[in-house]
Design a protein around this nucleic acid. Structure first.
Lengths: 265, 265
DNA sequence: TACATTCTCCGTATGGTGTACGGTTAACGC
DNA sequence: GCGTTAACCGTACACCATACGGAGAATGTA
């Protein structure tokens, strides 16, 4: 039976192989040194997968293609990794460790901004992160380290444990929105050429019929502005920073409320 | 050649068939009444697909299974819809129209909360929305109506067009985070039974070795709190509301700064 | 009424996917 | 040297989206 496994729990035999793999540096591989040695190692497999996803997009990420890159045949990949879902977990944890976690210093605002910028950079480097199912992030060392580091940034402010969790989720979750926008704009820019012109030529009549400005007065106005801004190679990173300021403002308001119990709205 | 199309542009022949389909109610189908009538219609196909995704998850969503539900053979589905990517666009726009857009009234805070709650409800009803690639949302009537409605909620506040776009993106983007958390907790709850106990039994030794509280002091504390809160059937909707208040606070701060040009931090 | 046209439905086929299973062979422990 | 073990991989299976072309129904036209 070929079960349709969604993201987890492939490690049927041994107690969770995925966890063991994620923490393979800390826990040594329980390598029974009996048979022939592996030519490669888990890291090279993960690296190849990341490179492939970076180069050709997440839709090109297949076990066959990964094997190709490694000079292996498809099924050999499975001697390194239990399956594709687990491999993706490893990829996510791996890229989470690419950037060193800087010392947390400065104001709360600056520390929160550091958290956001780390995530921002990660999305720009590895756009496929936006296209994979990130429910249930893998509990690997890098993801865990970063979570701890993020929590440390807001520790000791008088927030409850649950609030702290919420705040970090909020700030990291925020980033994906503008990151998507940024990458979309970039992709658009690359794909433009004349294909774009043709697209508009074909669709202009339909769009005009549909988007009569009586139905969408504000969208029309805003869309035009956004199009000009993003289209003409402006700085979409500015948008990221804008939203970030809003989010941080909101958090600061909350922290202040908690700290100075004067006016409870 | 089987091109690997990502989400768009399948409408090769006619000027964008996807748009025509999305707006099929407004623009009448250009139905050449020559051959036999279609037994079904586009809406029933979209409905079947949504039901399937609701019932069995996004991984079960295949053209074959959809055809099955409709009493058709696989390839007949393609007479209604150009391909799977386009069908998903139609699904997204369809569920965007399920909830009537309420009158926008009350304070800015209340209006922003309305926007967020609309998205929140949608995610809870259709969890698969969190698992599909939502870069480039389809420009269908319901998505467009809702965008316009959202912009209207913050129009006339003195924000620039770009800022308005940002604010709506921010508030709707925020929701996906807690929605994911909510649905994860729910799924966990359902899958618990005794499988959970076994999972812990198997993994406890590994987890203990890894998660020694010296390395993750804060995560340990916070994780426990979150686990107790979510695990013991508390109200995760509260978390959603918490973050929402923060985001709205941040937006209010910004609006106030713009409106009363006194202290520019 | 007859014919040509057109469009639905679908059988078949192609090239992709993840991965189960079993075989071959290389490397080690005894 | 021999038995055990594990890496590598050939083959096969179930499933996927979808291109292509044929059968037959419904219509417009002659």
């Amino acid at each position: 039976m070929l079960a349709c496994m969604s993201t987890q729990s492939t490690g049927r035999g041994e107690p969770d192989r995925t966890l063991r793999l994620l923490w393979r540096d800390r826990l040594g591989d329980p390598v029974g040194s009996r048979g022939p040695k592996q030519r490669l190692n888990v890291d090279s497999v993960v690296d190849a997968a990341i490179e492939l996803a970076d180069d050709e997009g997440v839709e090109a990420l297949s076990m066959r293609r990964i094997a190709e890159r490694l000079g292996l045949k498809t099924m050999s990949v499975y001697t390194y990794v239990p399956g594709k879902a687990e491999l993706i977990d490893l990829m996510v944890d791996r890229v989470a460790g690419e950037q060193a976690l800087p010392e947390l210093e400065g104001s709360l605002r600056e520390r929160l901004a550091q958290i956001a910028h780390l995530a921002w950079n990660e999305y720009l480097r590895h756009p496929w992160l936006l296209s994979i199912d990130t429910s249930r992030p893998p509990l690997g060392p890098n993801v865990s380290d970063r979570w701890e580091w993020s929590l440390r940034a807001i520790d000791g402010l008088g927030l409850s444990d649950l609030d702290m969790d919420q705040v970090v989720t909020l700030i990291t979750g925020y980033v994906s929105g503008p990151a998507r926008a940024y990458l979309d704009a970039e992709r658009l820019h690359r794909a433009v050429a004349e294909t774009d012109e043709q697209w508009w030529e074909r669709n202009a009549p339909i769009l005009e019929e549909i988007m009569d400005s009586s139905r969408y007065p504000i969208s029309g106005r805003v869309g035009t502005a956004a199009g000009e801004e993003y289209g003409s190679a402006s700085d979409p990173e500015r948008s990221f920073r804008f939203g970030l300021e809003r989010v941080i403002d909101g958090i600061e308001v909350y922290v202040r409320e908690r700290t100075t119990p004067s006016a409870a709205s």
